[in-house]
Simulated scan of single mutants.
Amino acid sequence: MGAPDPCAPDPGAPAGPAGAALLELVAVMDRLRSPGGCPWDARQTHASLLRYLVEETYEVVDAVEGGDRDELREELGDLLLQVVFHARVAAEAPDGFDIDDVAAGIVAKLVRRHPHVFAGEAAAEDLQARWDAIKATEKTRASVLDGVPLHLPALARADKVLGRLERAGLEEPAAPGAPGEAAVGRELLDLVRRARAAGVDPEAALRTTVRELEAGARAREAATGG
């Protein structure tokens, strides 16, 4: 049996403060991007990392819906890496920002948007409306739809747009059917309306149904040796 590793953590030592391991992650990322680090990590840009950010986000969704807590912990780590990676890339620009700026920004936003928690304000009956009102003071937007990501999956984006329009009192009634693609689009939009009325996430509902379809197909393949 070899000598104990002097760098190994002491199992009897008290745990550090929450977030201490985040500092280690930032240090590791700094080493990877610095001279003598990893050539692959060093040449990445915000644009080149986007595909991984999207993939890791969906892997977190899969882990949540699959109910595997160990997998969720791992996938959250992979997603957190993307945040730290982007912040490290940004810090290298002359007018850049770093991970502390990112964290400080979201801390300030959360405190500002929860006055009933941090400023002694009585909780509003409609907390979503209060959130939206505070948000409106922070960003000048020409439309209530500004800021809805164009690259959201179609069902998720329809849900987001309908939600914005409902809260602003701008939603239009369902339009009559039209031929071809327009008719299918209207039917899908009406399904999203029904899902919202029932409190169902349409994107998640479709993912669940497709997973069930896949599981049934795989079972049939296994049974027939296909």
Rank of each mutant, 00 (worst) to 15 (best):
M1R: 06
A3R: 09
P6M: 08
P6K: 08
C7F: 15
P9T: 07
G12F: 00
A15P: 07
A15D: 07
P17F: 12
A18L: 03
L22D: 01
D30K: 15
L32S: 02
S34Q: 07
P35T: 12
P35V: 10
P35F: 10
G36K: 09
A42N: 04
R43T: 15
L50N: 10
E56M: 00
E56L: 01
V60G: 11
A63V: 12
A63L: 07
A63W: 08
E65S: 02
G66S: 08
L72F: 06
L72W: 04
E74Q: 08
G77T: 10
F85Q: 10
A93C: 03
P94H: 04
F97V: 13
G105Y: 05
G105H: 06
V117R: 14
V117A: 12
A122Y: 03
Q128Y: 08
K135N: 14
A136W: 06
S143W: 06
L145R: 03
L145M: 09
L145A: 09
D146C: 10
D146A: 13
V148F: 03
P149D: 06
L150G: 04
H151T: 15
H151M: 12
L152V: 00
D159K: 10
D159Y: 15
L162Y: 05
A168W: 07
G169I: 08
G169E: 03
E171V: 14
P173V: 10
A175E: 15
P176N: 09
P176D: 04
G177H: 05
V184G: 05
L188H: 00
D190N: 11
L191C: 11
R196F: 03
A204E: 14
R207F: 00
R207S: 02
T209Y: 02
A219T: 02
A219S: 02
A219G: 12
T224Q: 11
